[in-house]
Design a protein around this nucleic acid. Structure first.
Ligand SMILES: [Mn+2]
Ligand SMILES: [Mn+2]
Ligand SMILES: [Mn+2]
Ligand SMILES: [Mn+2]
Lengths: 215, 215
DNA sequence: TTCATATTTTAGTCACGACTAAAAAATAAT
DNA sequence: ATTATTTTTTAGTCGTGACTAAAATATGAA
C-alpha cells in the first residue's frame, strides 16, 4: 500500500518509461521536485520492491510496481470518464480533478465505478483504460499528419495538454469525430480537413498530435 | 484552504459541538489521537481563525470554521448518496469511502455532483445535507420509542454506526420505510412493529435510535 | 587526455502531524 | 482544607516528503 506521494511517483515512472530510460533528472522535472527528493523516493520504492535503480539502466518499475501503477492509471482514467460523461465537464477540465480522485482506492470502488460507467475502454482523451488485470486495450497508432487523404476517425492524442485540448475542442476535433483529410499543402505544412459541414485548416503541430483510424 | 487533517478536525468539532462543550479530551478520543496532538492542531486552527479555544468555553468553531465544516459534511453526504444510489453500495458501506472522497474539493465539483444526484436533501442514513450556503434541511426529531401506536415513516437515525445499520437493514427498517407501531410491551421494553407483511420486535436500544415522522 | 559540464549523491534543514513522558493546572473526593 | 484524580500543557522525538548547497561521479568536448 503505497502512500499518496509514492503513487504519484509510480504513475510518473510508468508514463516516462514509454519514452526510454528514466533518469532522476527526468523524473524530478516531470514531478516538479528536486533530484535529491526524487532519489530519496526512488530508494524508498526500491526498498518496497516497486522499482529497481542502477545508474546504467535508470529507474525501472518491477512487475509489482507496474501493476500498481496501472491500477492508479486505471482509476485516473475511469474518474475522467465519470467527470466527463456524468458530470458534464469538458475534456480539458477532467485531468486535474482526476489527479485527486485517483488516490481514493478502497476495496471494490474501482470495479463498481467501472460497471456504473459501462466498462469504458477509453477515457475522454482517447487513452486506453487499463483493465483490472493490467492489460491495456489496443488502439491505432496512425498519426493524422502522416496519412494520405481519406476519411478518418479520431481515436486519440499524443502529448495531451489543456491548451491543445481547448484548441481541438473549438475545432470540433474530439474523440470519435470522423473527419475527411482533404489534402496537405506541403509548402506551408497546412492540413485541410472537412469536419461536418466545415472546412478547417490545421498546422503540423496539431496534425501530428492527432491519432486516427481509417473510417 | 485547510489541510486534509485540518478538515478532519473541523468536521469532528462540528459533530461534537452538537453534544455540548468540546474539550480536548473529547476531540482527541473522537479522532483517535493524543490530547497533545489535538491541542497542537487546535492552536493551528485558532491561528487560522477557524476556532476559538478557552479552557472555560472549550473549543468552538468560528463562523468561518462552521462554514468550512459544513462544506466538508456536505461533500461527505453527497458522496454517500452517490455511492449508495449510483454504485449500489449498502448504507453501512458508504461512510468509510466517503471519508476519503470528502476531501476532494476542486472548484465546482460539489455543485456538479449535487446536480447529478438530483439535489438530494438527505443522505442514505437520513442525515440532512448542508446546502451550498450552509443551511441544513429541517427534519423531524421524533424518536420512535416515545411515540404512541400509529403509522410512521422512518426519516433518520440517532448515533449511527455500522452494526446498527446492518441490524436495521436486516429488519427492512430503512429510510423512507413506513411502519406501523403496534404497541410497546412495557414489562420487557419490546416494541412491536408491522413492517410490510411482517411483524418485527425490537428492543429499546434500537427503537430509541429511530427517528420518525407521522405517516 | 584533460578540462568543462551535466548528473548523481550526500549532508543538513524544514513543515506537518503524529507520538510519549512528565509537569502544571483544574476538579473532585475525602 | 487537603488529597487524589482528571485534564491540560510542555518538552522532546519521530516518520514522511520536501528543500538547498555542496561534493562526488559521469559524460562530453577540445
Ligand atoms: Mn489525465
Ligand atoms: Mn486522460
Ligand atoms: Mn457518514
Ligand atoms: Mn451519512
Amino acid at each position: 500500500m503505497p502512500t499518496l506521494s509514492q503513487e504519484n511517483y509510480l504513475k510518473a515512472l510508468w508514463h516516462l518509461a514509454a519514452d526510454g530510460k528514466v533518469t532522476l533528472q527526468r523524473l524530478a522535472s516531470h514531478l516538479g521536485v528536486s533530484p535529491a527528493s526524487a532519489l530519496a523516493m526512488v530508494r524508498k520504492l526500491s526498498a518496497n520492491k516497486l522499482v529497481t535503480y542502477r545508474r546504467t539502466t535508470g529507474i525501472r518499475l518491477t512487475a509489482k510496481g507496474r501493476l500498481t501503477a496501472l491500477q492508479i492509471v486505471r482509476r485516473h482514467r475511469l474518474w475522467e470518464v465519470f467527470l466527463h460523461d456524468k458530470l458534464g465537464y469538458q475534456w480539458d477540465e477532467v485531468h486535474s480533478i482526476a489527479e485527486q480522485l485517483e488516490h481514493v482506492a478502497p476495496a471494490d470502488l474501482t470495479e463498481r465505478l467501472d460497471a456504473f460507467l459501462g466498462y469504458p475502454r477509453f477515457d475522454p482523451h482517447g487513452d486506453p483504460i487499463p483493465q483490472h488485470d493490467g492489460t491495456l486495450p489496443g488502439r491505432s497508432d496512425l498519426v493524422l499528419s502522416e496519412q494520405p487523404p481519406a476519411m478518418y476517425r479520431i481515436v486519440g492524442l499524443v502529448q495531451t495538454h489543456d491548451a491543445l485540448l481547448r484548441q481541438l475542442h473549438s475545432l470540433n476535433l474530439t474523440i470519435g469525430q470522423v473527419v475527411e483529410l482533404r489534402h496537405h499543402r506541403s509548402f506551408d505544412d497546412v492540413f485541410v480537413l472537412r469536419v461536418g459541414q466545415n472546412t478547417e485548416h490545421i498546422g503540423r503541430a496539431v496534425a501530428e498530435r492527432i491519432i486516427v483510424e481509417p473510417a
